[in-house]
């Protein structure tokens, strides 16, 4: 089985200064990977490379080339805070813009419209299709962008910190939706700073801090994180969120 995405000995960064070095990473059909790591560790840089926004300094990224009707088999949900909420665009147009990821010769605008409507009603937001995005709540906004990401029937769905600026209720719904998509064989790459919440959904964890360490399990200990050179804290969600500290000597 060939991987959907194969990252081979990849080094990349900005202004000749590497942020990530010698990264090897493969994504297969049923994968659900949580990408964690400290701020500035290279999580976003890795996403940019996969999306083709950043040229590798060395190494390469290859996609499995057998996916019909698509340019890149990727659906992408950006951090909603980067979106200009005052831009004059309606929900429906945002969702339709997901068609950019498709080969324009293989889809008609009627098909795009129909698919957009399906996704909107599936997500329970068909009623706001003509609203300008400036009038949406954080949860609605997240749903709209999820619809856009799914419009091109991607094989891999990439989410950049979807848990920021979203109410808790929708966060749970979102992860359940992702679990469902993953059961339907969509690979999911979920960048998050909140390991505690995502660990019950993901199947594997990639720790990114200049290097990438792949941990093929959703349970990770502080000791393992430390050995991966990944200085983040595991937050356990009980009644009151608290940090699980390592033992003091």
């Amino acid at each position: 089985m060939k991987p959907l995405i194969k990252i081979d000995n990849l080094t990349l960064g900005y202004d000749k200064e590497p942020v990530l070095e010698k990264v090897n990473f493969e994504v297969f059909e049923d994968d659900f990977v949580g990408v964690i790591g400290p701020n500035g560790g290279g999580k976003t840089t890795l996403l940019k490379a996969i999306l083709g926004l950043l040229k590798p300094m060395s190494g390469k990224i290859t996609f499995r080339g057998d996916i019909d009707g698509q340019k890149k088999p990727i659906g992408y949900l950006p951090q909603v805070k980067h979106i200009d909420r005052n831009f004059p665009i309606t929900v429906f147009d945002v969702v339709r813009s997901g068609s950019l990821m498709q080969n324009p010769k293989k889809v008609t605008s009627a098909q795009i419209k129909q698919k957009a409507e399906e996704l909107l009603s599936e997500m329970g937001i068909l009623n706001i299709r003509n609203k300008p995005i400036g009038e949406l709540s954080g949860g609605q906004m997240q749903r709209v962008f999820l619809c856009r990401a799914l419009l091109s029937d991607p094989k891999v769905l990439i989410l950049d910190e979807p848990d920021t600026f979203v109410d808790n209720r929708f966060e749970g719904e979102l992860y359940e939706k992702l679990r469902l998509l993953n059961e339907q064989h969509m690979a999911i790459i979920l960048v998050s700073h909140d390991l505690g919440t995502i660990s019950s959904y993901v199947k594997a964890i990639a720790c990114v801090n200049r290097e990438l360490h792949y941990h093929p399990d959703n349970i990770i200990t502080q000791e393992q994180l430390n050995s991966y050179n990944c200085p983040i804290q595991i937050i356990s969600h009980g009644e009151i969120p608290h940090t699980v500290l390592k033992h003091h000597h």
Partner: peptide, 19 residues
């Protein structure tokens, strides 16, 4: 029209799509 609109709205997404 649509390409101009999409690029203006979310340039990064448009770039990722190869426009």
């Amino acid at each position: 029209f649509q390409k101009i609109l999409y690029i203006a709205f979310d340039e990064e997404f448009a770039r990722a799509s190869g426009l």
